[in-house]
């Protein structure tokens, strides 16, 4: 039972994949799997920071609109550059602007939660509104198109390309493949997936190996004990909310690259899904428990459900129902685990 509760999310994901592979035409294919993975990358990146916050017995409700704010800031910064700016510099500018603007709400969240002892739910709910309003004000209520040549490829390209007959090529399609031939081209490893994998590895290291990660678990387990043990809890809490805002900001900039625009509401639908991914992945909203791998599985479960239902031709509104059921199921499994432990 104990082992079952630990691996249920893996099993559930496996069952979903088998189920949709048998019932959905075109579900089981490299093309579809890569599409699912590329689509889940933004959600997953946002959920990484949330995982830390939830393990520390907090919650960050502002990430959806912090992502929007960062995507607006990134779009404004990139479009303000002269047309002949080299692409890498444009990308770096967007990244820097998005991160800088996105980290400010995180810092404010952290300061108010740590120093003024206001519950995280309230502070980040307030910041939800503030970031939303400022995002729309900055963009004047409209999406900002970022029509920069080559930018879309940073968000939608592949690490490798395979063309029958001429083998593999790195980052670019093989030279001379054009027109109709492009249809036979297979991309391998979409860029958003590569970015997400790098960030997942970094987050995993931070949580499992670093002092900051250990302190995150300690604060979530017993904040009073953490204080008495000499952990600089206030500083850690501020860093946690900046980490959460930072990962939302990275999601926002990735959104810029992927959809070549910036929008204040780009992350609106992702907030609850990202919290759901963390919870489905086994993190406890009471703090002290959770892993990055769990969050990855949680995000994949949500993405596979959404994708599978579309492929089966089921009314998309059922996706909300299905994800909702899985969230409740996840918490039930968690509670059963607690009872077994006692």
């Amino acid at each position: 039972m104990r082992t079952l509760s630990r691996i249920w999310a893996w099993l559930f994901l496996l069952v979903l994949i088998i189920f949709f592979s048998l019932t959905g035409d075109g579900f089981f294919s490299l093309f579809n799997f890569q599409a699912v993975a590329a689509n889940v990358a933004i959600l997953l990146i946002m959920a990484l920071g949330q995982t830390f916050v939830i393990i520390a017995a907090g919650i960050d409700l502002s990430t959806g609109f912090v992502m929007g704010l960062a995507s607006v800031a990134g779009a404004l910064a990139m479009t303000s550059l002269p047309a002949d700016t080299p692409l890498p510099l444009i990308v770096l500018t967007g990244l820097a602007a998005g991160l800088f603007v996105g980290l400010i709400p995180g810092l404010i969240n952290g300061l108010i939660i740590a120093k003024l002892k206001v519950p995280p739910f309230i502070v980040t709910l307030g910041m939800f509104g503030i970031a939303r309003g400022i995002g729309f004000l900055m963009s004047e209520g409209m999406p900002i198109p970022v029509s920069i040549p080559g930018l879309g490829r940073v968000g939608n390209g592949y690490l490798f390309y395979h063309y029958p007959g001429s083998g593999f090529s790195f980052l670019q399609p093989p030279a001379g493949v054009t027109g109709v031939e492009l249809r036979q081209l297979t991309g391998i490893l979409p860029h958003p997936v590569t970015y997400a994998i790098i960030l997942v590895l970094a987050a995993h290291w931070l949580l499992k190996r670093s002092r900051f990660g250990l302190h995150t678990y300690a604060i979530g387990g017993n904040q009073e004990a953490a204080v008495r043990a000499g952990i600089p809890v206030d500083r850690r809490v501020i860093a946690l909310y900046m980490l959460s805002a930072g990962s939302a900001a990275l999601a926002g900039v990735l959104y810029n690259m992927r959809f070549t625009n910036g929008a204040a509401n780009s992350g609106e639908a992702l907030l609850l899904d990202s919290i759901a991914a963390v919870v489905i992945g086994g993190a406890s909203l009471f703090g002290g428990e959770g892993t990055i791998i769990g969050t990855v599985i949680g995000a994949l479960i949500i993405a596979v459900i959404q994708n599978g239902l579309v492929i089966l031709g089921i009314n998309p509104f059922w996706q909300f129902v299905a994800v909702g059921v899985v969230i409740i199921l996840a918490v039930l499994v968690d509670q059963a685990k607690e009872q077994v432990a006692e």
Binding site: R211, L214, Y217, A218, G220, G221, N222, E224, A225, A226, R228, A229, G230, I231, G287, G288, E289
Partner: peptide
């Protein structure tokens, strides 16, 4: 203290070193 001030989600060795972890 009476409440021991331990982090119950962490193991004994981590609790012994909490706040002064060797790196």
């Amino acid at each position: 203290y009476q409440d021991l001030a331990l982090c119950e989600n962490l193991d004994a060795s981590v609790n012994i070193f909490l706040g002064r972890e060797p790196m």
